[in-house]
Design a protein around this nucleic acid. Sequence first.
DNA 1: TCTTGATGATACCGACCGGTCACTTACTAT
DNA 2: ATAGTAAGTGACCGGTCGGTATCATCAAGA
Lengths: 194, 194
Amino acid sequence: MSSATADRPKAAQRIHSAAKDLFHRQGIRATGIEEVCRVAEATKMSLYRSYPSKDALVAAILEEDAAAYDAWFAEATALATAPAEKLRAVIAAIADKLEKPDFCGCPLLLAQAEFRDPGHPTFRLVAAYKSRIRDQLAGLAREAGAADPVLLGDTLAMLIDGAWCSLPYMGGPQAATVLRQSTAAIMDVLGKPA
Amino acid sequence: MSSATADRPKAAQRIHSAAKDLFHRQGIRATGIEEVCRVAEATKMSLYRSYPSKDALVAAILEEDAAAYDAWFAEATALATAPAEKLRAVIAAIADKLEKPDFCGCPLLLAQAEFRDPGHPTFRLVAAYKSRIRDQLAGLAREAGAADPVLLGDTLAMLIDGAWCSLPYMGGPQAATVLRQSTAAIMDVLGKPA
DNA sequence: TCTTGATGATACCGACCGGTCACTTACTAT
DNA sequence: ATAGTAAGTGACCGGTCGGTATCATCAAGA
């Protein structure tokens, strides 16, 4: 067992990844810290040595999620040069995500539904993240020369959030297909100059 | 106080409406039954005399929500005659809903985010409701002569769900405007025969 | 007037939750 | 060998949760 324990990630890391997975799949309120520790094969004391509270653990995970999405957005847009192509690349990347079998929706959007108080840190974090995405989409739409860049950007934002939500009743493949085709159609109409 | 108590709704009714409001605004898991009873000015015993459990109360409210949405859908579409006009009427009615100041999103969609287990009654109820809406939209799209009715219907379904989600970071008025304009554009493109 | 059904008041239960405690184990760097 | 540090163990705390039991109140109808 010595070799197994040697390669084993640190307790804090195990707790972090277990919590991320459980919070995402089951929901944050539905997941107790004892379950997190059991799945992480760690103890509560290890959790509380790394994070001062469950809320702090939640915040750390959601901040990481938001940062990962920012990086992923930058990466997806970096592959293209023209602004319109950047928008298409973002949509394509989201559609690919939707098709992954075990994907169950945007973690940040789900989290916001669990913490609906506008003053709650989680709510604010998600709102800030979504606003950032919204601004980026509108910026690309403006660079692409859309007649009404805010309208195009907000429409894409709506379709993206709608795609996350449609996952449970539409299924990943169909959600991906609809997102791809509807955004293509929308960009044909709203992407042109006035 | 006698006149006040005389006109007062029955305890079961007060509990029902208080729970509906709190579950919608704060979330189901975030609302305890004691808070429901306090707001309803009733006692726990009155609650449990009318409903066998909190889950049953939740189910009753969500079923009522779903039924109300069905009736509201029928009413919105009844005003128009042509299928394309029916679709426009549904979108218009949703946009109006979005603009109401105290509206905070589709109760069923929010509830599903709280109960993510596919086997949970709440999850299933919402999935069934969303599928029904999806079918109705596709049906109207087919009657309207769309080249790909499923694509049009699913696109509209996505935009609608996206509109609910965009409420926190976009605001009701802007969400309504975007929904109106984007659906008009989409129906121009996808609403025509092949 | 007497009954009856609905409601209120309140104390209580067991279970679970987030979080803390004192103490032990095991690895590792010097 | 030793000391420092990360991690584990299991009991425990106060609070809250969903849910129940008992008894009192009170209005309306026979």
